[in-house]
């Protein structure tokens, strides 16, 4: 339990150290941080009751299209839980509302570009995560490297449309928050 955090911190420090010098060399560490972040979003998000897995069955983190994480994500997920549920990883080439993903990292692929995936998931209770390295299309969480550290933007309005609630603790860490409309 302590090792992922230590890794994360080490990664953060390394990313910060290397971002100034060689951006390309920094990329593996950046990827590792993102892999550690993905399963961590689960405790800070709340799904509609129909989407909550029964006790013992896992929350699912999907990687759609290009997968930069590989084994790193599986290791990170293994160390995380949300309540009594474990967290598993699935890799998909395409995704839509019926895929059963709680969190989806949209890596993009020719078969389903990020924008298409976002369109396909519109309105379904899946926390979409996009990456500035992949493209400009933004999901609910959008990774971006800032001052050598992995940070993220949050589109709370999109989360609201998908019936998701994001913890204010998470929002407080975001680089920017697109506020949900008051309805």
């Amino acid at each position: 339990m302590r090792s992922p955090l230590a890794l994360l911190l080490a990664a953060g420090v390394l990313v910060a150290a290397m971002a100034t010098g060689a951006g390309v060399a920094a990329q593996p560490l950046e990827t590792a941080v993102k892999a550690a972040f993905l399963p961590k979003f689960a405790p800070y998000a709340a799904w509609p009751s129909a989407s909550i897995p029964p006790a013992g069955t896992p929350y699912v983190v999907c990687v759609v299209g290009h997968d930069p994480f590989g084994q790193l994500l599986d290791e990170a997920a293994a160390g995380q839980r949300r309540d009594s549920s474990p967290i598993t990883v699935q890799r998909l080439s395409r995704i839509d509302g019926r895929s059963g993903c709680h969190i989806a990292y949209l890596g993009g692929s020719p078969a389903q570009p990020v924008a298409a995936a976002l369109t396909a998931l519109a309105g379904s209770p899946t926390l979409t995560v996009t990456d500035a390295r992949v493209g400009r299309d933004r999901g609910m969480v959008h990774f971006e490297l800032k001052s050598g550290r992995v940070r993220f933007h949050i589109d709370d309005a999109a989360a609201a449309r998908a019936n998701l609630a994001l913890s204010s603790k998470l929002l407080s860490l975001a680089l920017s928050v697109k506020q949900r409309g008051r309805s």
């Binding site: 800070y44 603790k169 998470l170």
Partner: peptide
Amino acid sequence: ASVTAALDFGDAAA
């Protein structure tokens, strides 16, 4: 309570 997420995501600044 207020630093849970910051600690979780290693956000020392927060």
